[in-house]
Amino acid sequence: MAEAEGESLESWLNKATNPSNRQEDWEYIIGFCDQINKELEGPQISVRLLAHKIQSPQEWEAVQALTVLEACMKNCGRRFHNEVGKFRFLNELIKVVSPKYLGDRVSEKVKTKIIELLYSWTVALPEESKIKDAYHMLKRQGIVQSDPPVPADRTLIPSPPPRPKNP
């Protein structure tokens, strides 16, 4: 498992989800996306790292990780979609929203964001059938009461590029 010189996936993600960030830092978020696209096993490794951050007990770390996940879905293409579309990863999201697992200890903000993301992918990526299976299971369980208001036409439009720093 060769790593690119300099920053690794883990170091980009640590910076992008650092709880001491005052706001979402798109330089690091896009850096993580670019690193995924550079590495042979980028998608496989990155979803494992993301799942861990999304399950963070610190709300701000988890929220930033979900923003990173959303950006990766927009910028890292089918290889990344295929990894997210496996139950192995989807189960990690389900654990966060389900009261049988971590749901009781997780903030509503994090749970809502996960449900919005899952729903938006069922619309934007109908070929990823396991995402639909996971989402419909959450509905059957009553964890999702009704589809969230997500503008489907905007779900997979690439994220904005990092803003240049002021000189």
């Binding site: 139950f87 192995r88 189960n91 389900i94 697992y101 396991k130 996971a134 299971m137």
Partner: peptide
């Protein structure tokens, strides 16, 4: 083969 066995092992979380 690897992909097939991965597919077989990929299950939705029991609820």
């Amino acid at each position: 083969l690897g992909e097939e066995s991965e597919e077989r092992d990929d299950h939705l979380l029991p609820m």
